[in-house]
Design a protein around this nucleic acid. Sequence first.
DNA 1: GTATATGCAAAGGTTTTGCACAGCC
DNA 2: GGCTGTGCAAAACCTTTGCATATAC
Lengths: 146, 146
Amino acid sequence: VGSSVVIDDILDSLRRRGLRMTPQRRAIVTEILELHGHISAGEVAERVQKRIPGVNASTVYRTLALLEDVGVLSHAHFERGVEYHRSEDASHVHLVCAHCGAHDSLTTAEIKPLERLVRKHHGFLPDLTHFAISGTCRNCQTRAGG
Amino acid sequence: VGSSVVIDDILDSLRRRGLRMTPQRRAIVTEILELHGHISAGEVAERVQKRIPGVNASTVYRTLALLEDVGVLSHAHFERGVEYHRSEDASHVHLVCAHCGAHDSLTTAEIKPLERLVRKHHGFLPDLTHFAISGTCRNCQTRAGG
DNA sequence: GTATATGCAAAGGTTTTGCACAGCC
DNA sequence: GGCTGTGCAAAACCTTTGCATATAC
């Protein structure tokens, strides 16, 4: 499907660090690469257990932490808690409607001016991808206003 | 100390809803009003128990939810989880340095242009106070850069 | 007196940790 | 073979819930 190449890249970067490749890790990495978006540790555990029954949740947690440490994954904060995503996919801001739960996102280009605004005022270099942005989507504004 | 007037306002708004004022609630409200900033449910429980030993954590959770429902409190998301603050204090965005943990904030005036940017691109009306903004503070940028 | 709030205890959920064993390199 | 990763079990948190009792109004 094309993702196998990427998987091998990741496996290589793990090996380079003297880390080992196990069926469990491979399954976890595969699961996350096939997903475009974000996923909780619990969901990863569920899905991986469908591939390899018996994989323990603690293994999933440890592997996610490891992959984050290596730089393959990042986590972001949503209303329901922490979710993981490929670091490559980190370049967009999550907009979540507090009323209907709809997700939308800002692209890298759209984020830049936002970053600049925050930086100018406080010298603070924001990572707007790390926490979602809550609010009201266009649809829900219409409903509330009409 | 001046906050007693505010407390009475809150107690009134509870009574108006047919809700009762108990020593526990009074202690919880007092604790939060004396704090300018944000605090986790666990911390509230700890502090309240110093005033009234024996107050149960479930009472604290229920009271916080109630106060949020009434509109006195709001919650926001930080790296370590959910924290509560007076709704009046909600008008600033939390900037948290991912490296040193330093907190800073944007004022209402500073938030406006940010909101406008997000709204223009997606019609999405953001509540930038609900999630913190992670990043690198000026100090930590200097250290990293130098 | 009655409806509400509290305490208690238990349960549910998530995440972490210690340890013996299994398995990758 | 040695070091790393895994499973298991338990624990540590955090938060919620059901129920009997206490209490504010």
